[in-house]
Design a protein around this nucleic acid. Structure first.
Lengths: 264, 264
DNA sequence: AATTCCATCTCGACT
DNA sequence: AGTCGAGGTGGAATT
């Protein structure tokens, strides 16, 4: 028997089955009228209503209503589930530490309880990720620009690992930041930190004062002036928002439109 | 009857019940052996295994295994669920547009199907958010620093709305960025953009070139030099990471340790 | 519909 | 355990 199911159980019955399911390491679902409270990283209270409580053997707990992709309340994996009957009502509690947080679900009515034993199948294969984009560029560097040569990926710098580091046809260093989807201004800031780190490392730029970040100063580095552009910054993403484009232009960076997977 | 449940149904039976439940607008759970494939913003494939499929009347679909807080596969609210039997097997498909994406769940075995009618209770009350932090500061500005006076919240600037804008005891403008929890370097970049925008707006700073972002330049603005510090940047958060602290110091910004809710 | 930013983000990798 | 960055991030507010 891989699924045990109780219909409209008494709270005591539900408790027994729940504890047996905990022991078996089953995936458990409880549907019924309940109130929920959470306290930990934040705090919340949810009045009485019909909800589905999912209890996983790895300690995760999810409270779902009839809408939304996210649970209204939850507890991360690693929590410990406990159940009890107080005042004739089923209470489920899920607690974890570091950080300490507690989820409490108090049922006034249990309409169904199911315990399911789960086996196999965790081999998810995901395509179209940032890693796919990196692979694509390493296989065809000309997608960035003719003559581009990758030197390394996850290239270490003071500002953290650079997605792709390389040189262009003129031998000028190029810092490449990859994003799998359309990006906002935040990505430009990230690219700027990497470029700055490499400029400092290579001791380029006339003075110790690097590229000003001022949005007002439209001192975009002209691409033909090698003296002030000895390190190029390149954002590779399917597209960029308008504000991101502005920030790119302000800093003299470039955008290359590229999808993580080839267009069909 | 608010819960309908089928044990080890034939695939045809499951289909009938599924379609009836769609019509009723029920919350549906299907547990059984299945394979899952997704195509849309990315693409993924998941081999055969025991999983719980949750179908919500708002169009959300969730595929859960025995571990993890997040579903292994899902479809956002607004999708349309369809079910069919092909080659004697139950197939559930969930499709949405803009962006176009499809989730397909093929069952080889249905162990349980439940349809639940959900009513009421969506009045979640959440505490400890960034908004709570803002409220707390407005009620007690001295928590920032003695003499601090808030002028406005969500104060408009070229770089976007500033969490709290105010002046200190000397009348110097103060840009305050709020974070409800420990922050990394990204928050400092955000604060920097706001401060720069205000400096430009007020036309302060000796030249049109604003504060350089160079990490090497340890030109922290001394707090007693009013000429170069006519706009102060302040990061209010419970704590900051080490790298964030460095970037704060580089730019002459300050950190005020404050929780979104008062310590008990 | 697109953009922006918060989130009890979650998750994984690395230190 | 803490930090950092990716994510099919999700979700809400705003434009």
């Amino acid at each position: 028997m891989t699924v045990t199911s109780l219909h409209d159980p008494a709270h005591r019955e539900a408790l027994w089955e729940l504890e047996a399911a905990f022991d078996r390491g089953d995936l458990i679902s409880v549907f019924g009228r309940c109130s929920v409270s959470y306290e930990g990283r934040a705090a919340s209270d949810l009045g009485s209503g019909d909800r589905l409580l999912l209890l996983k053997p790895d300690g995760a707990a999810l409270v779902h209503t009839d809408e939304g992709q996210k649970p209204v309340n939850w507890q991360p994996p690693g929590s410990e589930h406990r159940a009890a009957v107080r005042e004739g009502r089923l209470r489920v509690t899920s607690v974890r530490e570091t950080p300490e947080e507690t989820l409490r679900v108090h049922f006034s009515d249990v309409q169904q309880l199911s315990a399911m034993s789960v086996t196999g199948g965790r081999d998810l294969e995901l395509h179209g990720s940032e890693e796919d984009l990196r692979t694509r560029i390493l296989e065809r560097p000309d997608l960035i620009e003719a003559g581009f040569e990758p030197i390394g990926t996850e290239h270490p710098s003071n500002a953290g690992p650079i997605d792709v580091f390389g040189v262009d046809a003129d031998g000028t260093p190029v810092v490449v930041e990859l994003k799998r989807r359309r990006v906002g201004p935040d990505a430009v800031g990230q690219l700027a930190r990497y470029v700055r780190a490499i400029r400092e490392e290579l001791g380029t730029e006339g003075s110790s004062v690097a590229e000003p970040e001022t949005e007002g100063s439209s001192m975009a580095n002209p691409p033909d002036d090698a003296d002030t552009t000895r390190v190029r910054g390149m954002l590779v993403a399917p597209s960029v928002t308008e504000r991101a484009a502005e920030r790119l232009a302000d800093r003299g960076f470039e955008h290359v439109a590229l999808e993580p997977t080839p267009a069909e």
